[in-house]
Design a protein around this nucleic acid. Structure first.
Lengths: 172, 172
DNA sequence: GGATGCATGTAAAATGTTACATGATTTA
DNA sequence: TAAATCATGTAACATTTTACATGCATCC
């Protein structure tokens, strides 16, 4: 049998968290939380309750190296990637199976079931979505951080989703 | 203040579950589980431990009406949408804010952080992803059920993602 | 009639959300 | 210097995963 887990597999949240740390070189839990909170997606809550424990778990797994950076009399921890963390991140980033997974797209789900609405509701929905997508594409800087959820990347994805939306609409 | 919650808001999982029931008119927890398990996305686990309790919660919230359909001596419950369930589902389906949310796209995240890999790794990744996307688009019937995660819809979305991928690649 | 798979769940553990607490720092 | 905001967490609760248990049907 192939050795299945020389590096531990990461969830999307874990992978993104490690990426954020790696990109900066060093980062606190708060910093990671802020980046996530700046995401255009509501699926990244960026809540303290999610992120602080996450960083602890990744530390316990040996993927992050904490250092105590208390300022004044206040406790604080800054993290860097350990060598194992770097390996795990590389494995996550280049995981093609995960990459091609369609993930979760709320628009896709709705188009799949839109026939459950009546004609009026459908029309209304399609027209509002169309408008909102156009706005999202036009809006250069969306509110939030420029790091993970980089504007340009966001725009590219929104354009692709609009295309899917229009194609699906044609077949509705 | 506006009455904020005459119908309870649904998560994506809840919305999809109600949609599956609504489309069939009637369905067991097992049926819903099977549809979810047939999804191309790993984010829908379709595990019994997720679905059976979910159906109970939706029942408790008054959105599903259970009926006892024991066959022989074995307990079984089939569900239909209650009037409140229908309203909640309509509200979910036509929720434009949720619809435009980018959701979770594993490919998007990876392209965002791909610069953390070295040139070789990047090349390898891009070429493999490209191939896998092409395969996914060409493959007419993907393994799994034809209901929620309808082939045609899946294909449209994969095409859109390939376009985003190519555009992002050009700017890498 | 034993093995295999379908159908219906539950239990323990992990993860994530919401809400709170509290120390430090900036701002009015 | 009081109020607001930033930063660092924890606690209770809800949800989800993983793993197990078990009854019925079918097929070999």
């Amino acid at each position: 049998m192939m050795s299945h887990g020389s590096v531990s597999e990461l969830t999307e949240l874990e992978g993104v968290a490690l990426s954020v740390v790696a990109r900066s070189g060093t980062m606190t839990a708060y910093g990671v939380k802020e980046v996530l909170a700046g995401s255009p997606s509501r699926f990244w809550s960026g809540s303290a309750g999610a992120v602080y424990p996450l960083m602890k778990r990744l530390t316990k797994r040996g993927l992050l190296s904490p250092s105590d950076t208390a300022t004044g009399r206040r406790a604080a921890t800054t993290y860097t990637l350990s060598p194992d963390g770097q390996r795990a991140l590389r494995a996550w980033l280049s995981d093609v199976d995960k990459a091609v997974d369609p993930g979760i797209d709320p628009l896709r789900f709705r188009l799949l079931y839109l026939s459950l609405l009546n004609e009026n509701e459908k029309q209304q929905f399609m027209s509002e979505v169309s408008q909102r997508l156009a706005e999202a594409i036009a809006a250069h800087p969306f509110p939030g951080g420029p790091d993970v959820f980089d504007n340009r990347n966001h725009q590219i994805w929104m354009k692709a989703r609009r295309q899917a939306f229009e194609e699906a609409a044609r077949e509705l």
